[in-house]
Structures are given as C-alpha cells and as structure tokens.
C-alpha cells in the first residue's frame, strides 16, 4: 500500500518457504518494544527491512550483528531502517537487558518510494529475487555455524551462548 515499504515482508515470506531449516518468521512494527521482544526470542536472527538513504534503489545492505551490536553501518547515519525508531535502539535496549541475540545479520534493500497508494517500484521488484536468495543464504550460513558449534561442543570445546541453539533458534 505504501510503495516499497512492504518489500521486507514479501521477501521474507518467500524466503521462509524456501529455507530448509525451521525458521520463525515475525512481522514486527517499528516501535522499540516490539522489536526488543522479537529480538529476545532467538539467539540467532536475520533482520530484513527497507532502507532509506543507503544506496541506489534495489541495492542491498548487509551488517553483521554480534552480541546485540550492529558491527558497521552502510552509511554515516545511525538509522538504517526506514522506521523512525531504529534497529540500533532496539538492539541497544536488548543488550542492556541481557536479551540480545548472540549472532545475526541485518539485510536491507533500498527503497525508491514510500508514497501512499503507490505500487512497489520497478527497481525493488526486480531486486526481490536477489534479496530472497540472500536471505536463504544467510539462514544456511547461520545454521552451518550452529552445526559447527555443536560439533565443537561434542569435542568438549565451550562456545558459550551459541551452545544452546536448536532448530527453532533462528528467527527471520
């Protein structure tokens, strides 16, 4: 209904159906409380959202999340997401409360228009398959890390927080 604002939900829905691993899909409003509740429900997380001011329309941003902290920003602003209250604030609050995901990644796609009543832009529409593929790859990467952690645990190597992962621990 609002241009490219729905790109994340569309891509995540398609990606979740293609993932071999059990993934919990959550649609979350931009308010900080709901974001923290969502972030606290899985030790590994993939966050996908539309971005504004992070490149050409349709381009992808990728930022690692480690122990509740975004590791770098694609441009010089704290707000990557198109929402007023950003992921950064929610991660900060989750980290303060000790409920932040141990590992994850933010995947963003730059939107062209967020105008009411406008359809999704051509740039974003044509970029959606790449976004879906990226999400599927990221889920596989995070799950592979989980398997490696389990292998290491079996060898008696302590990996801390990641040791408790199971098939339901990945949220998209």
């Amino acid at each position: 209904m609002r241009g490219d604002d729905g790109l994340a939900l569309e891509a995540a829905s398609v990606a979740a159906s293609q993932m071999r691993h059990q993934v919990q899909l959550q649609c979350v409003n931009g308010n900080v409380a709901d974001l923290v509740n969502a972030l606290s429900e899985a030790p590994r997380i993939i966050v996908v959202d539309a971005t504004h001011g992070a490149g050409e329309p349709g381009s992808l941003s990728r930022v690692e999340i480690v122990n509740g902290v975004l590791q770098s920003m694609p441009h010089d602003t704290a707000r990557v997401s198109s929402h007023g209250l950003g992921l950064q604030e929610a991660l900060g609050l989750a980290a303060t409360l000790g409920v932040a995901p141990g590992k994850g990644v933010f995947i963003g796609m730059e939107g062209a228009s967020y105008e009411l009543g406008q359809p999704m832009s051509d740039a974003v529409r044509s970029g959606l398959p790449a976004l879906v593929a990226t999400l599927v790859e990221e889920a596989a990467r995070l799950s592979a890390t989980k398997r490696r952690v389990q292998e290491l645990a079996a060898m008696g190597i302590d990996c801390g927080q990641l040791q408790s992962c199971n098939a339901e621990d990945l949220a998209l």
Binding site: E89, T96, L97
Partner: peptide, 22 residues
Amino acid sequence: ESAISMAADHGDVVKRALRMKK
C-alpha cells in the same frame, strides 16, 4: 535520556513493560 539508559538501572521495570506490551 532514554529507555535504554533507564534500563541499565531499572531493568526489571523495562522487562515488565515488554511482557505487558506483548
């Protein structure tokens, strides 16, 4: 300044709020 800084000292209050919101 913010709920984030408040949470450091009043974590239980904020956690209760998140539970209620849910």
